[in-house]
Design a protein around this nucleic acid. Structure first.
Lengths: 138, 138
DNA sequence: GAACCGATGCAATGCTATTGCAAAGTACGT
DNA sequence: ACGTACTTTGCAATAGCATTGCATCGGTTC
């Protein structure tokens, strides 16, 4: 369904180049968030920096969001519908599995309201839960 | 109160060397979490690697906990009473100020219970809230 | 004093993120 | 079709943090 991928890019105002189609196609096939390294290994031989910039572009345009899961390597995953460059709606929980080392989005698990001390004004939130994922707990 | 600092180290089974006394003393004077760079700059001329290992030792022994606030540099802050090497009780919220770039522990703001999807078993949680801190919001 | 062990300091390395610059490709107006 | 301008890509290079190996130093023990 290259057509779908292409129109997805266009709807986000991203020029649909061959490289970007490939990257987006790869991203849609993932079941967990991937790092730049994963992407580089998963794709054919391509330039690491180009992949890096492709992810940055996607992030700017609200197509993917980045996740700092504490491993040191930034992970990327497709956004939910409704994200744009200005406003990422990625206020869901991210889960890092200590067993398989994968990072998952839990889009249906929202971060609850937190009562902050007076004077603190929240703008973004980032909740990483580490543990054993569904697949590894069997 | 060098005596207090020394006994704190001993109570955590850490050999109280001159360097460690200095580092711990410095840590107790902080109002926010500090990075290795901050420590290096704040202390007199000392070896970066030694400071790094000192922090690691403190972390192993449950004296400080490390915070990944997404800036790329690991921050360290003193633990609450009750932490040990096996079990860090750092389940409080960490707040990163987008204005002054400081990272604060909010020890009285606990992470609420999160209902995870079936099969996911949580072990650790890490909640970073970014925004404007109390001092900068005035 | 000799052997030993932990702590320290220096050198060196690995990895991720990031930028500069040049080449290749694409779009557009004439 | 041609040239120009803009975008994208690829390569080289750099910066910063984390981490390890090894030698040295200092104190402890026998």
């Amino acid at each position: 369904m290259t057509k779908d991928i292409e129109s997805t890019l266009k709807s986000k105002n991203i020029n649909p180049t061959a490289m970007r189609l490939l990257v987006l196609d790869f991203l849609t096939k993932q079941t967990s968030a991937i790092s730049l390294n994963d992407l580089e290994k998963g794709m054919g031989p391509s330039d690491r920096i180009t992949l890096y910039r492709t992810l940055k572009t996607f992030e700017d345009k609200g197509l993917v969001h980045s996740i700092e899961d504490g491993t040191g390597a930034t992970k990327y995953a497709l956004c939910d519908i409704g994200c744009d460059g200005e406003n990422h709606h990625d206020l869901h929980v991210h889960f890092y599995c200590n067993s398989c080392k994968e990072t998952f989005c839990l889009p249906n698990t929202k971060i609850p309201e937190i009562a902050l001390p007076a004077g603190f004004e929240p703008q973004e939130m980032n909740l990483i839960i580490k543990g054993i994922c569904e697949l590894c707990s069997h």
